[in-house]
Amino acid sequence: MAQPIFQTLWKTGVVFLGALTAAAYLVLAERKFAGYFQERYGPNRVGPFGLLQPLADAVKLLLKEEVIFPQASRGLYLAAPVIIGVAALLPLAVIPFSEHFYIADLPVAVLYLLAVGSLSTYGVLLGGWSSNSKYALLGGLRSAAQMVSYEIAMALALVGVALMAQSLSLVKIVQAQQSLWFLIPQILGFVVFLIAAFAETNRLPFDLPEAESELVAGYHTEYSAFKFAMFFVGEYIHLFIVGCLVTVLYLGGWYGPWKPGPHWFFLKTFLVLFFMIWVRWTYPRFRFDQLMRFSWKVLIPVALLNLLLTSLWMAL
C-alpha cells in the first residue's frame, strides 16, 4: 500500500489539475443545462458551443482589481477563501477513481471525509464575520446552522454504508459493491445522503446562505477578483466531490455491467451531477425554519431508522 513518493506526487498533480478542470467545466455545464431547461442556449459566444467560456471567466476573475474593504478584519478576511479552497480540495486525497488510481487508501477514509468537510464551515463563518457586512453575516450564520445540522444526517447515512462494507476505507467500500450496489440495500441512506449533499453544497432548494433575492450573495458578498474565485471554484469542486462520493458510496464506483474501470466512475459521477443541476433549476427555495425542521425532524430520524435496519440486517 505504501507507494513511492514520486508516484503519490504525480497522482496528486493529476487529481488536482483534473479537479480544477472539472470544476471549471461544471460551471459551464451548469450554465448550459440551465439554458436548455429554460429553453435558451446558454453561453455560446466564446469558442464552439461556449467551450472556452471557463477560460474567459478565469482570466476575467484573475485580472480584476483586488479590493479589501477598510472595515474588514484583514487577516480573517483573507483566511476565509483559503480555508474554503483547501477544505474543498482535501477530500480528493481519498477518492478512488478506479481500482488502482487513488492518492491514498486511508483505513479511516470515511471519518477523514467528515472531518475535512466540517472545516469548510469555518471558511463560510469567517467570510461572513470578517466582511463586517450584514448580508455576509446573515449568510454566514445561516450557512453554519445549515451545515452543522445536515452534517449529522450525512454522517448517520455514511455509518450505514460503513456497516454494510464492514470497513471505513473507500476502496474496500467499492469492492464490497461488486455484486450489488449499496443503492439497493441502502436506499433510505442514499436518499438522506443525497438530500444532505444538496444542503452541504449550499445549492437550491437549500441555498439559503446565498439566497440572492434576500442576501445579495450571502457570505461572499464582499469578496471580489481572486478571492471570489476561490469561493466559486471551491463550491464547484465541492459539488464535483459530492458527485464522486455518491458514486463511490452508493453506485458501485468503478464497477459497471462489463469491464470495470474509471469510465464507469466518471459516467456515474456525471449522471449524479446532472441530476443535481437538474434539481437546482427545477425547485424553488425552502424557508429557513422549514429547512431546519426538515433536517432535525425528518432527515435525522430517517437516517437513524436506516442505521437500525442496517444493524439488524447485518446482525442476522
Binding site: 486511508l106 483505513p107 479511516v108 471519518l111 477523514y112 467528515l114 472531518a115 475535512v116 468537510g117 466540517s118 472545516l119 464551515t121 469555518y122 463563518l125 464575520w129 450564520l141 453554519a144 446552522a145 452543522v148 452534517e151
Partner: peptide, 21 residues
C-alpha cells in the same frame, strides 16, 4: 488516525463551530 480525525470532526467541526456561532 482515528483519534486525529475524530478530534477534528467533533471538536473543530462541532464544539468550536457552535462556539463561533
Amino acid at each position: 488516525e482515528l483519534l486525529g480525525f475524530i478530534q477534528i470532526l467533533l471538536y473543530t467541526g462541532g464544539v468550536a463551530t457552535l462556539l463561533v456561532f
